[in-house]
């Protein structure tokens, strides 16, 4: 009887140990992957990919989640602001044109100023074409 009990304990113990070892291996590999993803080149590559697809819906959110606040990410933060200014200007300008009310006129005016501030002469050279594109989408042409 004692032997049977021990045999059962060993049987389940072996299965449990196999699971524990797998868990430990999985833990090590996932930590190694996380560490690699946290490195600047890896984060930069991921953001460059989002930006290259013009995926502004997630660009800033990804950067905020990963706390991408280093100098290398500044052009992308600038571009996210430019895109946000363009989007809000277009929405409130349309509302203002539709005569929905004064508050919409004020918002449109506010975002128009911001649109010009950020898109006319972006700080980062690589954002200049995006500035022109966003201005164009907003119905403006920037001076060459």
């Amino acid at each position: 009887m004692k032997l049977i009990v021990k045999a059962i304990i060993i049987y389940f113990g072996l299965a449990f140990t196999a699971f524990s070892i797998l868990l430990a291996i999985f833990g090590v590999t996932s930590v190694a992957e996380d560490e690699r993803d946290k490195q600047l080149p890896s984060r930069l590559k991921s953001i460059e990919y989002s930006a290259s697809r013009n995926d502004y819906t997630w660009l800033a959110e990804y950067m905020e989640i990963d706390m991408d606040y280093e100098e290398e990410f500044e052009p992308y933060w600038e571009r996210a602001i430019m895109h946000e200014a363009m989007l809000r200007y277009r929405i409130f300008e349309a509302a203002s044109d539709a005569g929905l009310g004064e508050e919409f006129d004020e918002e449109a005016e506010k975002y128009e100023e911001l649109l010009w501030e950020y898109c006319e002469e972006p700080v980062y050279e690589r954002n200049v074409p995006y500035g022109e594109y966003f201005m164009e989408l907003s119905g403006y042409q920037t001076e060459d």
Partner: peptide, 10 residues
């Protein structure tokens, strides 16, 4: 920085 401006203003 633009990051700080985005988070605080946008």
């Amino acid at each position: 920085s633009f990051a700080q401006r985005y988070i605080s203003e946008w």
